[in-house]
Computed example of a mutant assay.
Amino acid sequence: MAIKNVTVAGSGVLGSQIAYQTAYKGFKVVVYDINEDAINKAKDRIKALRHMYKHDIAATDADFEAGLSRISYTWDLAEAVKNADLVIEAIPERPDIKKDFYTKIAKLAPKDAIFTSNSSTLVPSMFMEDTGRPAQFLNMHFANQVWLNNTAEIMGSPKTDPDIYKEIVEFARNIGMIPIQLKKEQPGYILNSLLIPLLSAGEGLWVKGVADPQMIDKTWMAATGAPMGPFAILDVVGIRTAYNITLAQAKNDKDPNAQVLADKLKELLDEGKLGMEAGEGFYHYPNPAYKDPNFLKI
Rank of each mutant, 00 (worst) to 15 (best):
T74A: 07
S16D: 10
Q17H: 10
F27V: 09
A38V: 08
G67C: 03
K82R: 15
R70N: 02
P92I: 01
A90N: 05
L138H: 07
R133E: 01
I46S: 02
A78F: 10
I46R: 01
S72E: 12
F127T: 00
D61M: 04
F137T: 05
I91V: 11
T121R: 11
K99C: 04
K98T: 04
K25L: 14
E89H: 06
F115H: 04
N83H: 14
D44C: 14
K28H: 12
Q136P: 09
F64W: 03
E129K: 13
N83W: 07
D100K: 14
F137H: 01
Y24T: 03
G12N: 05
A135V: 10
G67P: 00
F101D: 03
W75Y: 13
D37P: 08
A78Y: 11
D76A: 07
Q136M: 13
G132S: 04
S119P: 05
D85H: 07
P92C: 02
D44N: 13
A113Y: 04
V13C: 13
M52K: 15
V81H: 02
F137P: 07
G67Q: 08
L49T: 00
T22V: 06
I39A: 00
N139G: 15
D37Y: 11
D112A: 08
F127S: 00
F127P: 04
F101Q: 00
I114R: 00
K47V: 14
K28V: 04
F27Q: 02
T74H: 00
H55Y: 15
S119L: 04
P92H: 02
T116F: 05
K41S: 14
I71W: 00
A80R: 05
L77W: 04
K104P: 08
P134H: 06
A80N: 08
N139C: 14
I91Y: 03
P92A: 00
S120A: 06
A113G: 01
N139S: 15
I97Q: 14
I114F: 00
E89T: 01
K99Q: 11
R45V: 10
N40P: 08
A90E: 09
E129W: 13
T22H: 00
K82W: 11
D33C: 05
S120D: 08
T121L: 14
A62M: 09
A113K: 05
I18H: 10
D130E: 12
T22M: 07
K41D: 13
Q21Y: 11
V81L: 10
Q21P: 09
K43H: 01
D63W: 08
D96Y: 12
E65G: 06
A23W: 04
I105F: 08
L122T: 10
S72P: 10
F64C: 07
K28N: 13
A78Q: 13
A84S: 12
T22S: 10
I71Q: 05
V81S: 06
E36G: 09
F137K: 08
G67W: 00
Y32L: 07
M128S: 15
F64R: 02
